[in-house]
Amino acid sequence: MSEKKSTVIIVDGDHPPILTDHSDTILESLEKQNIEVHYHCREGFCGACRSKLISGEVDYKTDPLAYIDDDEFLPCCCIALGDIKIKLV
């Protein structure tokens, strides 16, 4: 069951765009490409992975409890709904 893949564009650092699908969280997709993202809990409650969501939409698989600002998201517990543009740290 191969899902439609979405593109994740990372604006900081020197990373090429990566692909993600609905079976991986965005954090997992980034890690598979050896892109360092800070994490602790991987369950949405600590905020260690907090990053900026510049454009696009994500869908949380776990209710995010960590504090995030309006333009931020938690890559450890969501998947991309279509293409997204993000900024790490």
């Binding site: 994490y39 602790h40 809990c41 369950e43």
Partner: peptide, 25 residues
Amino acid sequence: AIGMGQPFDITSNPLPWMNNYLNSD
């Protein structure tokens, strides 16, 4: 996370193995 900016220059985790102990899996 509380609007105080990032006062220190360091940008990458000097002890990356710590993450493995801090995840809740």
